[in-house]
Every structure is written in structure tokens, then in C-alpha cells.
Amino acid sequence: MIEYKNVLTTCPYCGTGCALHLQVLDEKLVGVLPAKNHVVSEGGLCIKGWNAHAFVNHADRLTKPLVRRNGKLEEATWDEALTLVAQKLGEVKTQSGPDSVAILTSAKCTNEENYLLQKFARAVIGTNNIDHCARL
């Protein structure tokens, strides 16, 4: 059985909020279509939106965390990687104070994820050093 559908979503690249359809053929993402009768983008997209599907199945995309051991990046489990990050961040915080940590978040995160990151920066680390890649 062949399955083809378009999944309506919002472009992940900037704050404009253009709507786009992800074309899904047999459970695999194959392309992008603009959403014509959507009030925000009215069928238009910029070059980023048109290529929003490209990174999802890209060969260069990291699907597992890499940890540098003896100067070489090696695949690790998420638990391992996150424990390492937490441990190192903790070390930096106790040695040099919370303001020695800065957090840069992304336009590709959702609003909720960005909220969580600033919460993490302020409440857990204890710093106001939080910024965003699309702060133009």
C-alpha cells in the first residue's frame, strides 16, 4: 500500500512562522510544499523554508552524541554524554562561578524549549548569560 500525505507544520528557521507542508511518502520525508491558504505565509516560503526537509535525513546529521576521548570523537549513549556535560558544567560553575557559563540557544528550538533554556541558565546555573542566534 502506498501512502502519501502532507503534514502541516511551521517553518523551524525564524520567527515569522510561515506554514509549510512536509511531504511524506511511505513514512519518509521527501519534500516541502508551501501552504497556500495559510494566513501567515499565503503560499510563500523563503529558501530556508523550501529546504526545511533537507537536514532531516541528511547523511551528515548527527543522530548519536559524540564524546571526545583521547583526542578522538567517539559515539556515546545519551546518558553518558549528558552526565559528562552536567559534570563539566558543575565543575566550571564551582571553580569559576556561574557567570563563567554562557548559553546560546537557537531559533530552531520551540518557544517552550527556549523558555526552558533560560530557566536552566537562570535557575540552575545562576547566570544571565543567555542569548539567541537570531537576535537581530
Binding site: M1, I2, E3, K5, N6, L8, N37
Partner: peptide
């Protein structure tokens, strides 16, 4: 047939091509 390509109304009344089966 294995499917018919036509337009389908999705969430929010947004229309997109779809393979009806």
C-alpha cells in the same frame, strides 16, 4: 486503483495534495 491523488482539507482548513486509498 492503488490510490487517487486529490486535495484534502487538513487542520485549520489548510488544503494539501493527498493520496486517497
Amino acid at each position: 486503483v492503488d490510490g487517487v491523488i486529490a486535495l484534502r482539507t487538513g487542520p485549520g482548513g489548510i488544503v494539501a495534495p493527498y493520496l486517497f486509498s
